[in-house]
């Protein structure tokens, strides 16, 4: 974990109020930190939201990010994940003329399947670790995906 530009996952619990997301993203941009992906949703039955931020940097940079996030008034808690379950989702649009059973089989290996069938296209969904989503996208290249959308990661510490 000591290499200088290692990938890091940070979860932030914030008060669900106006402009709170800008406070977080401004902090990253203003200090020259990079956000690789960002996922936000309200935590059920609470006034808080949970953000999952994938970023990169040295141990020192991450420590600063964590402290600076903490310093923001609406931030309740910051988790710098070390031992986590991390998942990401992707939706992929394929032409209906491709080999759908092959596509479905591959999707199954990545916790997914074809979830929608239209006149000309099908949409497949997979959810897995970000690294495995990379592999999946590589594997299905040959089926000429027309559009890909990734969700950004969500993570829970074990």
């Amino acid at each position: 974990m000591n290499d200088n530009n290692a990938r890091r996952v940070v979860s932030v619990i914030v008060v669900n109020e106006a402009s709170v997301l800008s406070r977080i993203t401004d902090l990253f941009s203003g200090r020259g930190y990079n956000i690789t992906s960002l996922t936000v949703a309200p935590i059920p039955e609470s006034k808080y939201s949970r953000l999952t931020i994938v970023t990169s940097g040295s141990v020192r940079v991450i420590e600063q990010i964590t402290k600076q996030l903490h310093k923001l008034i609406p931030v309740l808690r910051v988790y710098e994940h070390e031992d986590m379950v991390e998942k990401e989702m992707a939706l992929i649009k394929f032409p209906i003329s491709e080999n759908l059973s092959d596509i479905n089989t591959i999707c199954e290996a990545y916790n997914g399947k074809i979830v929608n069938v239209g006149e000309n296209v099908v949409i497949a969904m997979v959810s897995d670790e970000p690294k495995r989503i990379d592999n999946f996208l590589c594997a299905v290249k040959r089926y000429n995906p027309k559009e890909i959308v990734r969700s950004g990661a969500v993570a829970l510490e074990r």
Partner: peptide
């Protein structure tokens, strides 16, 4: 205004 002052204040509010 709050967009501008965000990075140079400890905290800010837009009262609605």
């Amino acid at each position: 205004a709050v967009g501008i002052s965000r990075s140079c204040t400890k905290h800010n509010y837009l009262v609605t």
